[in-house]
Amino acid sequence: MTKIGYAEIAAELRKQMQNGQLNPGDRIPSLNAIQEQYGVTVTTANRAFKQLKAEGLTYAKPGVGTVVAARPRSAATGAARIDRLNATGKPFVPEETATDHMAVIRGCNDDDIIEQLRIEPFEEVVIRRRTFRRNDVPYALGLSFIHQRALRDVPEITQAGPLQPFWQKTYTERTGKEITRSPERRTARLAAGYELEALEVPAPAHAAVPVLVLHTTFYDEDGPIELWEDVYTPGFWQESTE
């Protein structure tokens, strides 16, 4: 049996913070509880606590213990949102929301989307758009580009509002086809005007504003079925479960 180390314990607690099982202000398990849960020494448990504190994720609150710190400029990645949904059934932690939902069907002429979805130029895709917010501050513009073959089984994806349950779950239930995801891919580019507007970034006309962009591709047994593009507000940092 492989002995668990402090890094693995810290990673598990970090993941619970990211998926909403532990929220800002919550007390994390005590050193004794960690020792009993993972079968480790107090030294190992304490090293895990020190690691989280060094990362700015926790702090000692007199009379309470070690609690989760607020992270107002942190931003969940797409993978983290999926993992949170699977772990808790909740798409957001308490301080998060999504607004400005939109859904359209359009021909696609973006070379990267065409390559990732393996479609022909100007082939129609379903585009779903929403703005993710933390404490009512936009942190990411989320766009989903969904292969038109998904319409056969989940026509609801053209609805503008949030889909409950998550459309991929409905697709799997109706088709029996499991959906997997690629590793997240990160790049940077200059933001488009509509992206700055959605993210409420004040910038002069024609200003060059660099933004972080994250792509995640989803597949079923027939190939790519969805591409996520998250465009992050300058100044936010990411949280990922990977």
Score class of each variant (00 low, 15 high):
Lys3Ala: 13
Lys3Arg: 14
Ala7Asn: 10
Ala7Met: 11
Glu8His: 08
Glu8Ile: 01
Ile9Glu: 03
Ala10Pro: 09
Leu13His: 03
Met17Val: 09
Leu22Lys: 10
Pro24Gly: 03
Asp26Pro: 03
Ile28Cys: 05
Pro29Tyr: 02
Ser30Cys: 06
Ile34Gly: 02
Gln35Phe: 01
Thr43Cys: 00
Gln51Arg: 13
Gly56Pro: 08
Ala60Ser: 11
Gly63Gln: 11
Gly65Gln: 13
Ala69Cys: 11
Thr77Gly: 09
Ile82His: 13
Arg84Ile: 05
Asn86Gln: 14
Lys90Tyr: 11
Lys90Asp: 10
Val93His: 01
Met102His: 14
Arg106Pro: 00
Gly107Ala: 14
Asp112Ala: 07
Glu115Cys: 04
Pro121Gln: 08
Pro121Glu: 04
Phe122Asp: 12
Thr131His: 08
Pro138Gln: 09
Ala140Trp: 10
Gly142Tyr: 09
Phe145Glu: 07
Ile146Gln: 07
His147Asn: 14
Gln148Asn: 07
Leu151Met: 12
Arg152Leu: 15
Pro155Asn: 12
Glu156Met: 12
Thr158Glu: 14
Pro162Gly: 11
Trp167Pro: 02
Trp167Ser: 04
Lys169Gln: 15
Thr170His: 02
Thr172Arg: 13
Thr172His: 10
Thr175Trp: 06
Thr175Ser: 04
Thr175Lys: 08
Ser182Cys: 03
Arg186Ala: 00
Thr187Met: 07
Gly193Ala: 15
Leu196Asn: 11
Leu196Phe: 09
Val201Ser: 11
Ala208Pro: 04
Val211Tyr: 06
Tyr219Gly: 09
Asp220Arg: 07
Glu221Trp: 03
Glu221Gly: 00
Gly223Tyr: 04
Ile225Met: 12
Glu229Asn: 02
Asp230Thr: 01
Gly235Glu: 12
Phe236Met: 11
Glu239Gln: 15
